[in-house]
Amino acid sequence: MALEKIWVFGEAGADGAATITLEMLAKAREVADTVEVFIGGDGAARAAELGDHGSAKVYATGDLAGRMQGTCVASAVASAIASGEVAAPDAFLFGTTYDGRDVAARLSVKLGAGVLSNVVDLRLDGDRLVGVEPVFGGTLNVSSRFADGGPDIWLVRPKSFEPSPVGGPPAEVVDLPVPELGAAGGAVIRDRFTEESAGPKLDEAAIVVSGGRGLGSADAYSMIEGLAKQLGAAPGASRAIVDAGWVPYSYQVGQTGKVVKPTVYIACGISGATQHLVGMKGSKNIIAINKDSEAPIFAVADLGIVGDVHKVLPKLTEALEAR
């Protein structure tokens, strides 16, 4: 028996809806009769695309004037439910994103509802949702559900589902007013910066080239960028070198960080801590280069090169350039 209604938190991507939003819509349609999106921002601009992906309505706050998604959207949803304007859904789905986590966190407090996070699959068990979370580097899958009395709040990892447009009519736009926020609403965005990256995005690239501690120094990361550029790939990183400050957090592939599932993943000087494996072992093909033949990364690699990244990478980049 399907759920009655699921609400999906909608986010904007570079052009149109964020991929994670469309991924969640596809899964939500499988398990619920009615699927609706709620967003912090303008609804009309999103109505056609969200409708195409099966959302009947889009509840939208309108422009937030620089205020944070977390406080605004959580307050708007909680007050719409409290006032009886809308009936609470059986479940809320959020992407594991910067804003998704903020809204989910604040909403959970407002509704007194728990959050189950890092979910990579959802299925129906009777009239309840069960979510699957990988633990211990993805060696075990833990299935969990909420006790009675929802609504459920799920945080879904990107790349867990495939978007699937259904050609539905444009979603009906419904106003979702933001109430008075008080002190909690004090944070305001004064400026926005876009990091110019020449290549594709880390979580959307067909090829990802990642570097780890085996590079030896921050300077050596330029070898990763050089190879990535040559392959039209996105550069990534292990947690170790993000923690060391060599590259920003946005480069991080892993349990904390981004999940990637490219056609080819090239791990350079990465030993393969469970923390890292969770984020990349769903890749279709894995190439690993590491000096230590015992490194755990070789257990998941389709092609493992036991060798020094400082020797292999320059030759590899040069050979590709020569083609």
């Binding site: 990988p134 060696t139 894995i286 033949s293 257990a299 690699a301 493992g304 090169i305 020797k311 292999v312």
Partner: peptide, 14 residues
């Protein structure tokens, strides 16, 4: 449950 394991492939010493 145990997650399906990924099989290791070819290993080449440089």
């Amino acid at each position: 449950s145990e997650a399906p394991e990924r099989a290791a492939g070819e290993v080449v010493v440089d």
